[in-house]
């Protein structure tokens, strides 16, 4: 796809352009924030000290990315408080994959989730490398580099777990539960706005193309490990829109969420609420200055 003409600076966008950029950024930022929030549950609970350190690293990378994407939303005048701490939970746009709670000790869930997520993440970041929005384009390289390590981490763990009967069974269970939610990673926030995102060249591949690409990577990988995907409801090839059958009841992208999300949101805003805070204090340099 040819590179589209670059969009102007944040304060010079038309309302329609700005809406498209915002939708795209909420997809990115909310996913990264919530997936990280869940990963941190493994801190001081992982199977070994080494895996504890590794997952903490990944959580911090994702939080750092969330911070970079929220910062671009701040270009439109929003504050961190409005974006994270005071936003109504029913307005968030992350995929319902990342909000799912972990059952205690279900390390296979953490690994399968991160595998499904990180593969999708890599594909969508690649589709942003030539984004027509310079502020997004400029931040991709740093993020993509870190994602390489995340995919390697998940793949190594999956291979090791799959070698033993117990591990394979756990992977299968996690796959069966998570896969429908993972499909929501590619669901539209709003069909019209998603079309506009593509038309404006904000990303180089539309959602259904990325989903096909993702399926072509993850399905053979699971099958090679011995995890059956037969029961998974795979979307029909080249089906432009997701049919109702493919997706779970709550998609996330369209702001519908599972109960677990509302509990999680209450927990992470607890201190902010309890202390009657009205702003979130910054301690690190602004990403544009760093």
């Amino acid at each position: 796809m040819a590179v589209k003409e670059s969009l102007p600076a944040p304060d010079e966008l038309t309302d329609e352009q700005q809406e498209a950029v915002e939708h795209l950024l909420y997809r990115l930022a909310d996913d990264e924030f919530v997936v990280a929030e869940r990963y941190t549950e493994w801190q001081v609970r992982s199977p070994t000290l080494e895996s504890d350190l590794a997952l903490a690293n990944i959580a911090q990378d994702e939080l750092g990315h969330a911070r970079l994407w929220y910062d671009l939303l701040e270009d439109f005048g929003y504050t961190e408080s409005e974006l994270v701490w005071e936003r109504d939970p029913s307005e968030w746009r992350h995929s319902t994959l990342v909000e799912q709670p972990f059952a205690e000790g279900d390390w296979a869930d953490a690994i399968v989730r991160s595998y499904l997520y990180d593969q999708a993440e890599y594909i969508r970041l690649e589709a942003l490398e030539e984004s027509s929005y310079p502020r997004i384009r400029d931040r991709i390289q740093k993020i993509i580099q870190e994602e390489d390590y995340h995919r390697e981490h998940a793949e190594n763990w999956m291979s090791r777990l799959a070698e033993e009967k117990q591990g394979l069974e756990r992977l299968q269970t996690a796959f069966d539960r998570l896969f429908p939610y993972a499909l929501t990673l590619f669901a539209p926030t709003d069909e019209d706005v998603e079309d506009r995102i593509d038309e404006l060249g904000l990303r180089s591949d539309p959602l259904d193309v990325m989903r096909e690409e993702w399926l072509d990577v993850v399905v053979p990988f699971f099958e090679d490990l011995g995890v059956s995907v037969d029961d998974a409801e795979l979307p029909e090839q080249y089906d432009v829109h997701h049919s109702e059958f493919d997706l779970p009841e709550h998609v996330g992208r369209d702001q519908s969420h599972t109960d677990a999300w509302f509990d999680l949101q209450e927990e992470f805003t607890h201190t902010y609420q309890k202390l009657d805070r009205h702003e979130a204090n910054r301690i690190m340099k602004d990403p544009d200055e760093a």
Partner: peptide
């Protein structure tokens, strides 16, 4: 880590717990 009332502080709390491990 979960309770931290800002993004930066959450990152710092996660990093601190990781350091201790």
């Amino acid at each position: 880590i979960r309770e931290a009332p800002s993004l930066d502080r959450k990152l710092a709390c996660s990093a601190k717990v990781q350091d201790e491990i």
